[in-house]
């Protein structure tokens, strides 16, 4: 019998601290699989965020560094410029990347830094207990919007992929989801491509992964994945928002 599926080697053999049904585990695995398949475990350097994935440095077997809140793209810029032979990636949530770290993200994209950014969008602040995030949907009930997000008072959620794709800089901007098997497989391809682009020196790659937060949404894991499909994906449509190489080749 041949092994069809097993834990990737780049994912450490330790229990994950995430809540039951949290898709962070799936996304960690996809990143680890991409690292394994490209054979870059020895030269990959990850930058962990502040948020639920703050302990990602315990879960990946490659070198990892912890960034201050939102500063992961700035740290990754520094590492990549000092050590261009290494493959540098950040793993950030929506509170980290789209709120306090928005400036670092936009400027890293505008400079077309040759890094890979994995952006996990679950429309809420998970680690701090479910407060409204810049990506929370209109009408979404959170700890700090108990009557639902009022767009007249709190503004509209930010679509990071659409915004960054208007810049000249970035190489590859795409949005994927992990709510079903088909989308997980598509997400894996996108993450692998984002690493491959960096290995080829193409520039800034951002993969937004539409994720879920069953605990803070107050849902079962199954309900949360259904909510991703019914509520999040209409506001955050999947697709490739920018692919400079493909555009150049006329694809």
């Amino acid at each position: 019998m041949a092994v069809v599926f097993e834990k990737p080697k780049s994912l450490a053999d330790v229990p994950l601290h995430y809540c039951p049904g949290c898709p962070h585990g799936i996304i960690h695995r996809l990143v680890a699989e991409a690292i394994d398949e490209l054979g870059i475990e020895g030269k990959a350097i990850g930058v962990a965020p502040v948020g639920c994935a703050v302990m990602a440095y315990d879960y990946f077997t490659c070198d990892m560094i912890e960034a201050a809140h939102g500063r992961a793209p700035a740290i990754a810029t520094g590492i990549k410029r000092c050590r261009p032979e290494n493959i540098v990636f950040t793993y950030q949530g929506d509170g980290d990347l789209a709120s306090i770290g928005m400036a670092e993200t936009v400027h890293a994209a505008a400079r077309n830094e040759n890094i890979t950014v994995i952006f996990v969008n679950n429309a809420i602040y998970g680690m701090t207990g479910g407060q409204m995030a810049p990506t929370s949907l209109p009408g979404q009930v959170t700890q700090t919007s108990p009557y639902g997000r009022d767009v007249n008072h709190c503004g509209w959620p930010i679509r990071v992929c659409e915004m960054l794709s208007t810049l000249e800089g970035p190489e590859f901007i795409t949005r994927v989801a992990v709510n079903n098997v088909k989308n997980v497989n598509a997400a894996k391809k996108a993450i692998k491509k984002a690493f491959q682009n960096q290995m080829e020196g193409k520039g800034f790659n951002l993969v937004e992964v539409v994720s879920a937060c069953p605990t803070n949404w107050g849902m079962t894991p199954q309900q949360a994945l259904q909510w991703v499909e019914s509520d999040m994906l209409p506001y955050y449509p999947l697709g490739v928002y920018k692919d400079r190489t493909a555009a150049k080749e006329g694809k």
């Binding site: 092994v3 599926f5 990737p8 995430y18 585990g25 799936i26 497989n185």
Partner: peptide, 11 residues
């Protein structure tokens, strides 16, 4: 593929 904790091995 869907297991968030990667505890399943398939042969």
């Amino acid at each position: 593929t869907m297991c968030p904790d990667c505890i399943i091995t398939v042969e």
